[in-house]
Amino acid sequence: MNLPALKFSKTPRDMNRRDFLRSGAALATITLAPGVTLMSFGGEAAANADAGKRWGLLIDVNKCSQDCSACVSACSKENGWKLPENPETDAQWIRKVDLKDLLTGRESSLPMMCQHCEDAPCVDVCPTGASFKRKDGIVLVDKHACIGCRYCMMACPYKARSFIHEPLTDQKAHAPRGKGTVESCTLCVHKVDAGGTPACVEACNTTGNGAMMFGDLNDPESDIAKALLAYPSIALRADLGLNPGVRYSNL
């Protein structure tokens, strides 16, 4: 049996001066300035966005059960925020909300997170532009530019944002966070940019009830666009005209 020959990309001997300098710079960046390189969601995350897409979620409230919180645990694990010990001050990127219809008494449950509005109030009110919307509709906070004024939290109709009240440890490199700044669901932008699916949706489909669907709202061939076309769905606080990227059916 012929095994394919192993190929080394470049041995140290083949390394030219430019490669050497490049690796040195990379090493220096990794060792000296992890805070600087990891603490942002600015240019790089924005640059990866595809203007032709509009990422969104569709949540089937009928399938979501009150006793399941697989999406919440998955988000917490993926993005490195602790499940709340002190619910008043701890960050919650996603939460389960239990609802009871005041007229009929019917009970339901659904996950709430940043609704990634097209006309996002948090983006409008942010004085420094730290709160921004990518071309593909994902709303993020640039951790370098956030001054911690919390005006976005006042403006968000969905209570989607959290302020970091305490020093943090054990952060994930792909989900930068910082004391004194505001954060919220990133729609797992690091996974989406790599062609993946948000952790909440993955968890809901594997260990949950398959109530969440992720996809490109602009692509008529995507499952989410087809489902939105076939079944009735709503945007929360549709009266505000914000056109959120997250939709709910059977509420």
Partner: peptide, 20 residues
Amino acid sequence: LGRPDRLIVAMTEYNFSSIF
């Protein structure tokens, strides 16, 4: 502010749709 040390950001980066 959560980050008063970043006052310079507020003085140099403006989002003109913000009343702030």
